[in-house]
């Protein structure tokens, strides 16, 4: 009995770890997936627009906060694909994603690759503490946000 409980516990821990990495688990409903990705978007939006933006524009806030925000943003790398499974398009559980996203695999993959590269560059720039590097990297990040939202977010 104790062995069974231990095994179950290990399995549950492993599944939880897996879910944390991918952001969603296979057992999640479309509504859960949409909720998870909207939360992920809110986290990224706060990092980029509430923390990085005022720092880049007029030096408001602290470098430490920008570094933490950059790490938060980069921690989403590798998770984008799993957040947009089929069946979670516009009209499903408050989703704002236009169906073209699932029809343009190459374009989507490129946009995700660009975002991940820009997020990594932002983390490097933030660690350097160099204002010029941070400003340049920030432009890349915002460009990626804009490109994907412009392409696939319903207005």
């Amino acid at each position: 009995m104790r062995r069974t409980l231990l095994f179950t516990g290990i399995l549950a821990a492993a599944l939880a770890g897996s879910a944390a990495i991918t952001g969603v688990s296979l057992a999640q409903s479309p509504a859960d997936v949409v909720a998870a990705r909207q939360q992920a978007m809110k986290d990224k939006s706060a990092a980029v627009f509430r923390t990085m933006r005022p720092f880049v524009q007029n030096g408001a806030g602290s470098l430490a906060a920008v570094q933490a925000a950059a790490e938060t943003l980069a921690s989403h790398n590798g998770k984008y694909q799993a957040l947009w499974p089929r069946g979670t398009e516009l009209g499903v559980a408050g989703s704002k994603t236009r169906p073209e996203l699932w029809q343009q695999t190459d374009r989507l993959n490129q946009l995700i690759a660009d975002m991940e590269r820009n997020a990594s560059a932002m983390a490097v720039a933030a660690r350097s503490g160099d204002a010029g590097q941070i400003r340049t990297a920030f432009g890349g990040v915002v460009g990626s946000c804009n490109a994907c939202h412009d392409a696939y977010q319903s207005r």
């Binding site: 980029v48 007029n58 804009n146 207005r155």
Partner: peptide, 20 residues
């Protein structure tokens, strides 16, 4: 002023909204 300047430079609203 920063909100407007941000839009004119980056093409998004200050809260991350896209422009129509």
């Amino acid at each position: 002023d920063d909100d407007i300047l941000f839009l004119l430079e980056y093409g998004m609203t200050a809260s991350g909204g896209t422009l129509g």
